[in-house]
């Protein structure tokens, strides 16, 4: 199999592979012939200015949006025709840019939902779910890993913006996915929170590779094994942090020549 991005054909095989994905809204090309891979053990960051089509691309991968053409291969299967639910079951663990949580629930209940999903279904009608100590243990473990264990009993709508991002990550953790798709997990975290999350994601890549959309460039340059730059729906450059920093096209189109030290 050829590596469409073509950096390193001898490296780990790709667990997630996008081939020629396209999506248009009228005349606007939100995703324009995007191909990229995610290999085991890596963090592949996707950066680009606002409106570059990062979130649209994430939705095409996770299943919330049908592509006009192109395919998504995941863990050796073509998942392009599959629904969001089926892709989640296959092992795509997603976090949202705008927190997507059950707001009336407590923090713990949101994570329990993930644990239920991981268990394979919710068609149990009689036993109180909050008496399932095994699931609660899984949920609390996930909360502990993102640093929310002291907020388990809080109502989700009472969480700060940053805490909601952490909760999104905790729910994804309970799914034990094969791949993480994370859309701006650092947004709203503040300096110390960002630092903690950066350290956490750094360790997480050995469990499952991460396709990371992020605006925090310090975090991106610290974490990413590879970076792809998306502008107007197109990948204009792809490479290591050093290559991207040095790329004149990227400097011109996105980073802004004077911003990069």
């Amino acid at each position: 199999m050829t590596d469409p991005v073509g950096q390193n054909p001898t490296a780990e095989p790709a667990i997630l592979q996008l081939k020629n994905l396209r999506k248009s809204f009228g005349a606007l090309k939100a995703t324009d012939d995007v191909s990229l891979t995610l290999r085991r053990g890596e963090i592949h960051a996707l950066i680009g200015p606002n409106g570059a089509g990062k979130s649209t691309l994430m939705r095409q991968i996770a299943g919330g949006m049908k592509s006009d053409s192109g395919t998504v291969h995941f863990a050796g299967h073509d998942v392009t025709p599959l629904s969001t639910v089926a892709r989640a079951r296959a092992g795509l663990g997603r976090t949202f840019q705008i927190s997507s949580l059950a707001m009336e629930y407590t923090v713990l209940q949101n994570v329990m939902l993930g644990a239920l999903g991981h268990e394979g279904g919710a068609m149990r009608f009689f036993r109180p779910v909050m008496a399932r100590t095994d699931l609660i243990e899984q949920a609390m473990q996930a909360l502990q890993r993102v640093g929310l264990e002291n907020h388990a009993a809080k109502r989700t709508s009472d969480l700060s913006h940053g805490q909601r991002r952490q909760l999104e990550v905790a729910v994804a953790l309970t799914l034990s996915p094969k791949v993480f798709l994370m859309d701006e997990p650092m947004a709203g975290l503040g300096a110390s929170g960002s630092k903690r999350m950066t350290g956490f994601l750094d360790g997480l890549r050995s469990e499952a590779p991460i396709l990371l959309v992020e605006h925090d460039m310090d975090a991106v340059f610290a974490l990413a094994d590879r970076i792809s730059v998306l502008v107007y729906g197109r990948i204009i450059a792809s490479g290591t942090a050093e290559q991207i920093k040095a790329d004149p096209v990227v400097r011109e189109a996105y980073l802004g020549a004077e911003d990069v030290a």
């Binding site: 949580l101 036993r127 779910v129 799914l175």
Partner: peptide
């Protein structure tokens, strides 16, 4: 029950339920 938790979550946010 587990069903109740998931059903009520689907009312609050179906996208969240699909994602798990």
């Amino acid at each position: 029950s587990a069903f109740g938790l998931a059903l009520s979550a689907a009312r609050q946010n179906p996208e969240r339920v699909e994602t798990v």
